[in-house]
Amino acid sequence: MKKIIKSIIREIVPIILGILIALYINNWNENRKDEKYIHQILLSIDKELKESNESINEKIPLQKTLIDTLEFYKNNDTISILNVMMKADGISIPSIKISSWKAISSSKIELMEYDRISALADIEEQKENLLSKTQLLMDFTYQNIKETGADKKELIALMMRDIIVSETGLKEEIKGVVENRTID
C-alpha cells in the first residue's frame, strides 16, 4: 500500500509542479502584456492631451478676436451677427481628444492609478461641459444670426468669455496630467 501511495505521489507531484509553473508563467506573461498595454495607452493619452492643449492655445486668440469684433460692432445697428461672424472668421472651437482615455476606461481601467483616473475623468467631464456651452452658443447664434442689436452681440461675447474660461481650466487640468505622468 505504501508503494502505491509513494508511486501516486511521485506521479502527482511533478504534475502539480508543472501546473503551478505553467500558471506562474501565464500570470507573468499576462502582467507583461498588461504593462506593455498600459504603457502604450498612456503614451497615446499624453499625445492626445498635448494635441488638445495645442488646439486650445490656437483657438483662444481667434475667440478673443471674435469678442473684440463683437464689441467693436456692438452698437452698430447696420451690422448683423452674421456680418460680425464673417468679419471674425466665425466661431473657433478647439478639438479635445480623449479617445484613448475612453478606450481604457471601458476595458482595463484597473491597471491605472486612481489619481490619474480621477484627473482623466475630470478632463472628460470638462470636455462635456465645454461641448454643452458651445452647443448653447451655436444654437443662440443661429437663432439670432440676422439680429443687429447690441444686447444679442453682447450676450454672444459673454458666452464666448465663458467658453474661454472653461478652456483655460481644461488646459490647466491637461497640463497637470501631462506633467505628473510617470511611465517606467
Results as ranks from 00 to 15, higher is better:
K127M: 11
S100E: 01
L82W: 10
I109K: 09
D115C: 08
S95T: 09
L111K: 02
G149P: 01
L111V: 06
N144Y: 11
E58N: 08
E58W: 03
K97H: 03
L42I: 06
K127L: 06
L131G: 12
R116W: 01
K102S: 04
N53F: 05
E125T: 09
I79D: 03
E125A: 13
W101N: 05
E110C: 01
T134A: 04
Y114N: 09
Q135W: 07
A103M: 14
Q63A: 13
R116S: 08
S95M: 13
Q143K: 08
T69K: 12
W101I: 02
P61T: 00
M85Q: 05
K74Y: 12
I91M: 04
I123Q: 02
I98P: 07
K64S: 10
D77V: 07
T65N: 14
E154S: 14
L137S: 04
I81A: 04
K146F: 14
K146Y: 13
N83G: 03
S55A: 14
L136N: 12
K152M: 11
K64A: 09
D89W: 07
E147F: 06
I123T: 10
T148M: 04
E124L: 13
E154P: 00
I123V: 08
S95I: 07
M85I: 05
D89C: 03
S92M: 11
K102C: 01
F140D: 00
M138D: 06
L66I: 02
D89F: 15
L82K: 10
K64D: 06
D151P: 02
N57Q: 09
